[in-house]
């Protein structure tokens, strides 16, 4: 299943808007949708039927939302209204929303600029932390004084 057959331009705009709401700008880094991460998300997640279907169901629920229908489009709503719709979807479509959330954050926190900003460096952790961690036998001194309390049966 290819996402291009599933998501039209309007759907993509809505997804980008959701990305912007969920992961807003962070100082000099743009919000997730404005940063162009939809295309990355497409590459990473949209070869998966489960992911595509979850996004599809979320989008359908947005299109069917009474506020969206009354105002004409998702984009006509205030940011507060959009957040309220998303919060309701999170409650009522938990599994689908979880997939959406995982896809957005999974994409955002794979981005080099973002990883640099948060200081995430696997190699650094592996090289430095490993040297500092040693087993400290003194840590058991107090707990060893507890009388055995398992029940023999």
């Amino acid at each position: 299943m290819k996402y291009k057959e599933i998501f039209n331009d309007n759907d993509k705009r809505i997804i980008k808007e959701i990305m912007n709401i969920m992961v807003p700008e962070n100082e000099e880094i743009e919000a997730a949708g404005d940063k162009g991460l939809f295309n990355e998300m497409e590459k990473i997640f949209f070869d998966s039927e489960v992911h595509v279907n979850s996004f599809r169901r979320i989008l359908d629920a947005i299109h069917l939302n009474i506020d969206v229908r009354l105002s004409g489009s998702f984009f006509s709503l205030t940011k507060e209204n959009k957040i309220e719709i998303l919060k309701n979807l999170e409650k009522n479509m938990y599994d689908e929303f979880q997939i959406l959330k995982e896809s957005i954050f999974g994409t955002y926190y794979s981005d080099n600029e973002v990883l640099k900003k948060i200081g995430w460096d696997n190699d650094f952790i592996n090289k430095t932390e490993a040297k500092e961690n040693v087993w400290n036998p003194k840590i058991l001194e107090k707990v060893k004084k507890i009388e055995p309390f398992w029940k023999k049966i």
Partner: peptide, 20 residues
């Protein structure tokens, strides 16, 4: 790691503060 940390937190305006 970062993605799994983020997933457990709230999304929205407060996300980056909570993440930090």
């Amino acid at each position: 790691g970062p993605a799994f940390t983020a997933i457990e937190l709230d999304w929205g305006d407060n996300h980056h503060n909570e993440f930090k």
